[in-house]
Each structure stands twice: as structure tokens, then as C-alpha cells.
Computed example of a mutant assay.
Amino acid sequence: MKTIGIITNSDKDINFEFTKLVAGKIIELGGRVLMPHASASKLEFNVEALDETEIYSKAEGVLCLGGDGTYLKVARNAYTANVPILGINLGTLGFLTEIEKSDIDAALESILNDRYTIEERMMLETVIYSKSEVIAKDIALNDVVISRGELSRILHVKTYINNVFAESYPGDGIIVSSPTGSTAYSLSAGGPIVEPDLDIIIVTPICPHILYSRPFITAAERLVKVVVDENYQHSAMVTIDGQNGYEVKGGYSIEVKKAPCSVKMIKVANKNFFKILRSKFYMRGETFKDEI
């Protein structure tokens, strides 16, 4: 891989300190750097400045510098161009952006010398309906969240699997997530941890006002439908990957299923999922020794 795009969250990389380091290292290793015009102008050396949409179509791979939010934003653009991505963590937790600052040089050497693998992650296709009218369509890598609006009112939703009634949840809402999203909002709401290369869909209620409520898992081939109770008099929100939001009302339905597309992730190290989990969550980034 020689032609590499760089997308930077300027709020995370003050003065583009790490962007300069990454771009300079790629050029040093004989690579070609593509960057958006605004970011390219911050560098003291020349890189190819393009519109951001052009970067995804012309790059062999894209590096994003920031946190997991930055990664999700880039992923939602990269999948349409079928270009693989790698995240460099400039945030706090950085579960998706798994390359730490100290590992940048080694990661870039692996990429430029074609010592990497590509891992595909399933995405979720979402369609929002008002009766039979399509209100919106979107794609998520992590999750689709149906939640109450600004007023602190219990939101009543009904869930269906392949149009068969599954359960009704009164509470703050519901999360429909992919395996990749199992370690995001779903985890905070009490959902299960799932290995990211599986093909399943996770449904997790948010603060359910009911004693026996539990998250559940269904096959990726199923259609998950969430219906906002018709008697709900207030607006609710559908949030896709924390990036896009859509207002919904009583009677609206949200259909979620496995998308026909996927996100391609660049892997430069054979890191075990559970080792990453211990480091990122249980020990919050602290070093630890593997147990035998």
C-alpha cells in the first residue's frame, strides 16, 4: 500500500503534531499522502491536497487520527468507496482506533511494506417509516439508537423479529447494534460483549422500567423492527452511530437489518480481541501481563 489518505480531527490533534509525524513518515518510506485542503495547508511540506470525497476514491487506504467518533465518521464515508481504514488513537478509550501514539512508526512501516490484513465488519441498514412512507435511510457500523426526546418521558417501543412480536419495552429507548457496536453504548446499557467478526444483531433496552427486561441476540439474517407506541405524544430520536439524528413520533417504525456492504479495517498486528478488551476497558489502558 503506497497511496494513503489522512483524515484528522483537528480538535484532537492540536497544531497537527501527529498528522505531521504520520505524513512525514509515509513520505520517508516512499509513500504518497492525500489530505483534505484545509489539513494539507497546516503542514510545512507538500502533500497532495484534494476534496475529502476524492481521497476515499483515490487512496489505497485511509488513516484517521482522532477518537472513535472520528473513526465512525470516516468509516461511514470509506465503505462507499470500498477503501480500508486504520485508526490512530488521539482520544481517550479508542477501541476502534486501536493504534496508539507509541505504535505509529511500526504501524506505518507494516502498511507501506504490505504487512497487514483486512478485516471486514458487518454494518446495519436502517429504514425509518411513517406508516408506509419512507422517512429516511441510513447505514451504521456501531448502532442504531431509538431514544426519548428532550422531555424526560418514558418511551414505549415494541420490537419485532421478522415481523413476529418479540417484546415491549417502556423506558429510555432501545439500542440495535452490530457486533462491533457491542462494546459501545450497548455495553453501557448492560448488553453482551460480542466478538466483532460474528454475524449477529444485538437488541438492548435502555433503562427499562420493567423488572424482567433483558437484552437479546438474533441472527444477522433477521429483520429487527422497532415501533414507537402510537399513543406516544412526544417526539423521539433515532441516532445512527452518534453521527446522524432523525426525529420520530408515535406510530413510526424503524427497521434494521444486516447491510449488503461492510467496513474494511486494516489490521497491522495480530491482537487478540479479549486482550484489547482487557487493556481498553478493564484496565483503562494500563499495561498488564498476560496470564497463562
Rank of each mutant, 00 (worst) to 15 (best):
K2I: 09
I6V: 13
I6A: 03
T8E: 01
N9V: 04
D11Y: 14
D13M: 00
D13F: 07
F16D: 07
F18H: 13
L21P: 01
V22Q: 06
E28Y: 07
R32Y: 13
P36Q: 12
A40E: 02
L43N: 02
F45G: 06
A49G: 05
L50R: 14
D51N: 14
D51K: 13
T53A: 14
I55L: 11
Y56L: 07
A59T: 04
G67D: 10
K73L: 10
A75T: 00
A78N: 03
T80Q: 14
A81N: 07
P84S: 02
I85L: 06
L86V: 15
G87W: 07
G87Q: 01
I88K: 01
G91T: 03
L93S: 04
G94R: 03
E98V: 05
D103P: 02
I104M: 08
A106R: 10
L108A: 05
D114G: 02
Y116L: 15
E120I: 06
T126A: 12
V127F: 01
Y129H: 11
S132Y: 08
S132F: 06
E133I: 12
V134K: 15
I135C: 05
K137M: 09
K137F: 03
K137I: 01
K137H: 09
A140C: 13
N142D: 11
V144A: 08
V145D: 01
S147M: 11
R148D: 13
R148Y: 06
G149Q: 13
L151E: 12
S152T: 14
R153G: 10
L155R: 04
H156E: 12
T159D: 09
I161L: 15
N162A: 09
N163D: 15
A166C: 09
E167L: 11
E167V: 13
P170V: 02
P170L: 10
G171Q: 06
G171W: 06
G173S: 01
G173Q: 02
I174L: 15
S177G: 04
S178D: 00
T183W: 10
A184D: 11
Y185I: 04
S186G: 03
S188D: 08
G191Y: 10
G191L: 04
P192N: 07
P192E: 07
I193M: 07
I193F: 07
E195Y: 11
P196W: 06
I200W: 05
I202P: 01
V203G: 02
V203Y: 03
P208N: 07
I210T: 14
Y212M: 08
R214K: 13
P215K: 05
T218G: 09
V224K: 07
K225C: 10
V226N: 08
V227K: 15
V228S: 08
H234G: 00
V238A: 05
G245W: 00
E247A: 12
V248E: 01
Y252F: 15
S253G: 10
I254N: 00
V256A: 02
K257Y: 04
P260W: 08
V268Q: 00
N270H: 13
N272C: 10
R278I: 08
K280S: 06
R284F: 08
R284H: 15
K289M: 12
I292D: 15
